[in-house]
Write a protein that binds this DNA or RNA. Structure first.
Length: 281
DNA sequence: AAGGTCTCCTGAGGGC
DNA sequence: TGCCCTCAGGAGACCT
């Protein structure tokens, strides 16, 4: 479950269901799920077993469980990861890691494609070591708009690439990048250096607005891969204006939305409202 | 240094 | 029914 709103839905669910609970045992069922753990599954298990979860935090698409050892279990959901809390004893097909909680519930990391994963690490300044290089996300009150603008001007990069660069601004993925660009009437290839301050401010306001609206609706789910900790889907997909709307009329001007290859995936835009820049300045 | 391309995986859906 | 193709909410490693 990838972008910020979907990860935040999971964070809130975990806060409700696992904070204060003790992890009595943990089983790693697929080694790829802990490939970022030095020492592998044995090390992961040793550092997690017996610990109490004290908080669940997030930066961008990274999520972590704080432990009473002052270490953190960091989680990235990748393309298809889920964190599920259940008490019905069911074992999903792609279960990769299972945490047995003292209260009888099971916390499951389920991941069809195994692009996601978990690892235990140390905390520095409140953030796991491996998350330190990730920028604050736009819903973080300490996100610095002026610094973001300054960094955009220090480079010459297409604006969508910049939105997807987790070291510049975190939490934005392919869906919300396309939605925010549509709302701002910007083409994805607009040069970051040439954007006016007001355009960047409007873009940031739209990133925040679309993510806040999506969060209120439980995130974007196209299928059962993207669900909250109870297995329920969000319903923001019905509110999308650009993403996935190839051939359908732009909700602003009626022109058919186009899909174009971009960074080995797809970008959706209105060819009328989001004109291709003539030159990259 | 920016921007292509490929890779890691599994599964769904379309065309024939 | 099967087979082959393309595609998917991420992201790091190469190459030019």
């Amino acid at each position: 479950m990838p972008e910020l709103p979907e990860v935040e839905v999971v964070r809130r669910g975990l806060t409700e269901h696992v904070v204060g609970r003790r992890i009595v045992d943990v089983a790693v069922l697929h080694p790829r799920a802990v490939r970022r753990q030095a020492g592998g599954a044995d090390e992961f298990t040793a550092r997690v077993r017996g610990r109490v979860v004290t908080a669940v935090e997030r930066r961008g698409k990274f999520l972590w469980l704080m432990l009473d050892s002052d270490e953190a279990v960091v989680c990235h959901l990748g393309m298809s990861g889920q964190m599920l809390v259940r008490s019905d004893g069911q074992v999903p097909t792609h279960l990769r890691i299972a945490f047995d909680l003292l209260d009888g519930q099971t916390l499951q990391f389920v991941d069809q494609r195994t692009f996601g994963g978990l690892f235990v690490t140390e905390i520095e300044d409140g953030v796991p070591l491996e998350v330190l290089h990730i920028a604050r996300d736009p819903l973080d009150p300490r996100f610095d708009d002026a610094e973001f603008l300054a960094r955009l001007r220090r480079k010459e990069v297409g604006i969508k690439r910049a939105l997807l660069d987790q070291t510049l601004i975190s939490g934005v993925g392919n869906i919300y990048a396309d939605e925010a660009l549509w709302r701002t009437s910007l083409h994805y290839a607009r040069n970051s250096r040439a954007l006016r301050r007001a355009e960047v401010e409007t873009l940031l306001a739209n990133v925040r607005a679309v993510m806040t609206e999506a969060l209120a609706q439980g995130g974007t789910s196209f299928d059962a891969l993207y669900v909250n900790v109870n297995g329920q889907s969000g319903y923001f997909s019905r509110s999308l204006d650009a993403y996935g709307r190839e051939g359908q009329p732009c909700r602003r001007c009626g022109t058919a939305v186009v899909r174009e290859p971009f960074m080995n995936r797809s970008s959706f835009r209105c060819p009328q409202c989001q004109r291709k820049p003539r030159v990259s300045r």
